[in-house]
């Protein structure tokens, strides 16, 4: 089933070039945004753009799109674990450093 699919279908080089151009465009955007000196919003913007880039790489270059659903759940689990430990650590430092 899924195993055969992922063996047969290969994403063509053209798609990769489009993704690559998008990534470069996003890099240019993030540098430009940083030059605007938006202070507090600049961080959020740059994290947001970085996440968009990472999503592109994961979906297309790492072709998560074509992988079985179990792998997507596992990835979600790993990211959830990281998010939770960051949040819980910040439940300490946010308050302690003020």
């Amino acid at each position: 089933m899924t195993e055969k699919e992922s063996q047969v279908q290969a994403i063509g080089p053209k798609a990769y070039i489009v993704v690559w151009l998008c990534l470069l465009a996003l890099t240019a955007t993030t540098v430009t945004v940083a030059r605007l000196h938006l202070t507090a919003y600049a961080v959020i913007a740059s994290i947001f753009i970085a996440t968009a880039k990472a999503a592109l790489v994961v979906t297309f270059f790492m072709h998560l799109r074509r992988e079985p659903w179990i792998l997507k759940i596992m990835l979600f689990l790993a990211l959830l674990a990281l998010t939770l430990i960051v949040l819980l650590t910040f439940s300490d430092v946010w308050i302690r450093y003020k």
Binding site: L88, S91, D92, V93, W94, I95, R96
Partner: peptide, 8 residues
């Protein structure tokens, strides 16, 4: 550690 964190 902060009190909030301790309670959580």
């Amino acid at each position: 550690m902060s009190d909030t964190a301790r309670v959580i």
